[in-house]
C-alpha cells in the first residue's frame, strides 16, 4: 500500500518537474527570439524543412477533406432542398475547425516528430553539449529558429489547407453534383465573416503552432539520450501535441464562437 502511494507520489512529482522544465524551456526559447530575428537566415533554412516539405501532405489532405465534405454535406442538404448552403457549410467547417486542427495534427506528425528526432539525436550524439563547450548557446542556435519557423509555418499551412479544401468542395459540389456556381460563392461570402471566422481560424493556428513546436522541441531537448529514448520522445511528441491541439481547440472554439 505504501509502495503504491510512493509510486503515485513519484509519478506526480515527475510530471510536475516535467511541466516546470517545459515552462523554463519555453521561457528560455522566447528570450532567445530577439537574437534570432537578427539572423533571419537560420529561420529560412528551418522554414524550408518544416514548412515547404510539409506542403505536399497539407495540399493532398486539404483537397481530400474538402471533397469528402462536399460529397457528404450535399447528401444531407439535398434532402431539404438547401444544397445552395453547401458553400457556407464547407467554408465554415474548414475555416473555423478542420483547417487549423487537421493541419496542426498533420504538422505534429510530419514536422513535429522530425524536430524531436533531430534535436534528440543531437543530444544523444552530444552535439548540444559540444556547442555549449564552444560557448554557443544551443537554445539560440538550434531551438529558437525552429520555434519561430514552426509558429510561422503552421498558420500559412492551415490557410493553404482551408483554401485548397474550399476548392476541393467546389469541384465536387459544383463540378460533379451540379450545385449552382453563383449560389455556392455568394452564399459563402454572405455567411462567412472575415473577422469572426477567418481571423479566428488564423489565431487558432498560431496557438497550435506555438503548442506543437513547443512540445516537439521540448521532447527532443529533454530526451533520454539513447536510441530508445529518442524513439520514445518522438512518439510522445505526436501523442502529446495531438492531444493538446484537440483539447485547446475545444476551449478556443468555446471562447471564440460562443455567440456566432
Amino acid at each position: 500500500m505504501l509502495n503504491w502511494l510512493q509510486r503515485l507520489g513519484r509519478g506526480a512529482l515527475d510530471n510536475f518537474a516535467g511541466l516546470g522544465r517545459a515552462s523554463l524551456f519555453l521561457g528560455h526559447t522566447l528570450s532567445g527570439l530577439p537574437s534570432v530575428l537578427a539572423h533571419p537566415r537560420r529561420v529560412i533554412a528551418q522554414l524550408h524543412s518544416i514548412g515547404v516539405l510539409s506542403l505536399v501532405i497539407i495540399l493532398v489532405a486539404g483537397l481530400a477533406v474538402g471533397m469528402v465534405l462536399g460529397l457528404q454535406m450535399y447528401n444531407t442538404l439535398v434532402d431539404f432542398g438547401a444544397e445552395a448552403s453547401l458553400g457556407p457549410a464547407i467554408a465554415l467547417t474548414l475555416v473555423r475547425e478542420l483547417g487549423p486542427v487537421v493541419a496542426a495534427l498533420l504538422f505534429a506528425g510530419r514536422a513535429g516528430s522530425a524536430l524531436t528526432a533531430e534535436i534528440g539525436l543531437m543530444k544523444a550524439s552530444e552535439q548540444l553539449s559540444g556547442m555549449e563547450m564552444m560557448a554557443v548557446d544551443p537554445m539560440l542556435r538550434i531551438v529558437a529558429p525552429r520555434f519561430i519557423a514552426g509558429v510561422l509555418a503552421l498558420p500559412l499551412l492551415s490557410a493553404i489547407f482551408s483554401a485548397v479544401g474550399v476548392l476541393g468542395g467546389y469541384f465536387v459540389g459544383v463540378g460533379l453534383l451540379g450545385v449552382d456556381d453563383g449560389a455556392f460563392w455568394s452564399q459563402m461570402q454572405s455567411r462567412v465573416d472575415f473577422y469572426d471566422d477567418v481571423l479566428n481560424g488564423v489565431i487558432k493556428s498560431v496557438v497550435f503552432g506555438i503548442i506543437v513546436s513547443w512540445v516537439a522541441l521540448f521532447q527532443g531537448y529533454d530526451t533520454v539520450p539513447t536510441t530508445e529514448g529518442v524513439s520514445r520522445s518522438t512518439t510522445r511528441t505526436v501523442v502529446y501535441a495531438s492531444l493538446a491541439v484537440l483539447g485547446l481547440d475545444f476551449i478556443l472554439t468555446a471562447l471564440m464562437f460562443r455567440d456566432v
Binding site: L156, Q189, F194
Partner: peptide, 29 residues
Amino acid sequence: IEIMVGVFVAIGIAALFMLAMKVSNLSSF
C-alpha cells in the same frame, strides 16, 4: 532553399487572400 521558402510563403499568403476575398465577406466591406 530560399526560393522554395519564398514560394511557400507566397502560396500561404495567396491562400489567406483567397479566404479573405473569395470565401468571406471582406470584399463586400
